[in-house]
Design a protein around this nucleic acid. Structure first.
Lengths: 340, 340
DNA sequence: CCAAAATACGAAAACGTTTGCGTAGTTTGA
DNA sequence: TCAAACTACGCAAACGTTTTCGTATTTTGG
């Protein structure tokens, strides 16, 4: 299989002890320059590659970060991972990536697997089903560095990275109001999600500030397949007292809304305006083009990774502060929220 | 850090030898049922988690598969990884995922890192820059199981999984011809890519069969940013002898085409018809909706993983055959290729 | 009833690193 | 000049598993 040579064989080829070779390769001050050069040259010549598992076993470090996301076919999460990977690679760290598929059972299973030290740290965004957080608590209590992003878990005292969910939702809703909307609906995945709560707060406060009352039926909690969501939204659009504006908490519900609108006689933005949290690059070529609240995905990933790397690579770092770091989104206004 | 208990401590708690505990946990026939139960119960009670690095070191296996892709923000690759992960998880395998960002230098660096046995196998899709394949050859010669999908490397004698690129491109081009196109352009990334060659062959043969001649200027090789691509396509569309049909080898060039068309007076499908290889779920809500050749992404991932797992989990498996396994795409006809 | 086989477990080595400790040989310092 | 310090390296243990080999005890069989 992995027929590489070991440090013993390398040492034998040099008539040196393995310990000397190890120190030479690790640039120890105890080894003379001459010897170091010899070792390095021979290592190059024989293509010596240190066995990562022996290293990990010895050092109790894996140089690996686990990333746990609820969805892979998602521009936001993909970009976050790109950001994490960028920083991780700079420091020689590898990424184990796990997709929970929005399934809390899978999330628990995966976190359980990660208890054994396979990864030095975990960066994750929880499932829309995650309300019981004992599995997360267990990981944190075990001392495994854990940070959250986007869909965070408030109960765990660690650092979380999010965008300005409240403010963006407030601004987004305000934008709809300014464009003339009176009956604004809020689309999201699950009540349990941190982002749902914050974004709903922003939505709700914006309505109140405009002396509009948030109707209960205008908050749509979608959990199922894209088809089911489209159906739900269609029903809302066909109801007697239909909304004239929509703010969507996640990208795919905006897509479902476009799908649903196609089955009606409604026209965006004339009969219905819509704004969504989204990292779609193609929002601009939808017809009508889609107004988005663009989350700083890569930056979030980079910041997560930077924090982890700092903790993992420097000696005696303190535990992560129980804090929420906010990186603001940018609203891109397009046709879907044009005033008539 | 990872303050779990070791098998020694577990053995001590049971007044047994570590070897006995190990055998008990691995359900060895040499251990009595009574002892097995005791061990299992105590392991549960003390939350014993075997150290994966000790195992890997001992067994020279990592239970890890490396996935190397050129782009993460891409529905096709995301779905393939989902497929790989599904099968891998069923067999207790973990996924290290690397994004080369279409950069062959990064590809080389990553493959170099993978030489040390960190992963038991590699499944990858090469960069659009990959023409020299020595780094891939080296991995293969080292005996590390390696399979390719989609963007394959013909020089390496191993198993490759692709879709019916030639046939799909042929059918897709034929479809354009049937819908009335006379001047059909072909968009792709790089001449070096396997998929480019096959899909171009299909495109070219379809033209010949219809007594049309493929014009050199109608083959667009895009390498740069989305903006540059849009510019390139725009120039093509504004040229004197502009195409009336486009078949795009990759999703994002179809998107760029939509972007470019927006800057002209052309109307899809009246002035220009377009079909593309794509795994976008939202092809249907583009305006006009986009005719696609949908690759069986999940299946490709699953098949890659199945093949690898078979080799990794069964004793004395032969090396992968030097063969290409074809899983057909499905053409979904939508508005973008409607006849006038 | 006793040799042979089967059962159930333990001791120790091995996987490939890194590192604490020991030590020749050399250099330093008063 | 001679003890002290330093230089440059080797020995061996340790990380946590799994597995080979060995063996005491029990069971089987003729």
């Amino acid at each position: 299989m992995n027929s590489g040579i070991s440090i013993k064989e390398l040492a034998a080829a040099l008539n040196l002890a393995p310990s000397t070779v190890s120190r030479a390769l690790n640039d120890s001050y105890e080894i003379s320059e001459a010897t170091k050069q010899k070792v390095i040259n021979m290592a190059e010549k024989l293509n010596y590659q240190p066995n990562p598992f022996a290293r990990s076993l010895r050092a109790n470090k894996s140089r690996t970060i686990a990333v746990v996301i609820p969805e892979r076919i998602n521009n936001f999460f993909a970009k976050v991972i790109d950001g994490i990977e960028e920083i991780a690679q700079e420091h020689g760290y590898h990424l184990l990536v796990y997709n929970t598929h929005e399934d809390v059972k899978k999330e628990k299973k995966i976190l359980s697997l990660l208890q054994n030290g396979r990864a030095d740290a975990i960066v994750m965004s929880v499932t829309s089903q995650t309300s019981d957080t004992s599995h997360l608590q267990k990981i944190h209590e075990r001392g495994l560095p854990l940070v959250f992003f986007d869909r965070i878990c408030g109960e765990i005292p660690t650092t979380k990275f999010i965008t300005n969910d409240y403010e963006s939702a407030l601004k987004g809703t305000n934008h709809l109001i300014q464009q003339g909307c009176k009956k604004i609906a809020f689309l999201t995945l699950s009540k349990d999600l941190s982002i749902t709560k914050e974004r709903y707060r922003g939505y709700s406060d914006a309505l109140k500030m405009a002396n509009l009352t948030p109707e209960p039926t205008f908050s749509l909690y979608c959990k199922h397949s894209d088809e089911d969501n489209t159906e739900l939204i269609l029903k809302l659009l066909q109801s007697e007292n239909r909304p004239d504006g929509i703010i969507s908490s996640v990208e795919k519900l905006a897509i479902s809304t476009y799908q649903a609108v196609r089955k009606t006689n409604l026209k965006i933005p004339y009969d219905l305006k819509i704004i969504t949290f989204s990292n779609m690059s193609i929002a601009g070529i939808l017809n009508p083009s889609l107004t988005t609240i663009t989350q700083p995905a890569e930056t979030i990933g980079q910041e997560c990774a930077k924090l982890l790397i700092k903790k993992l690579t420097r000696p005696r770092q303190p535990d992560f502060l129980d804090q929420i770091i906010v990186i603001p989104s940018q609203i891109q206004i397009r046709e879907s929220t044009m005033a008539r």
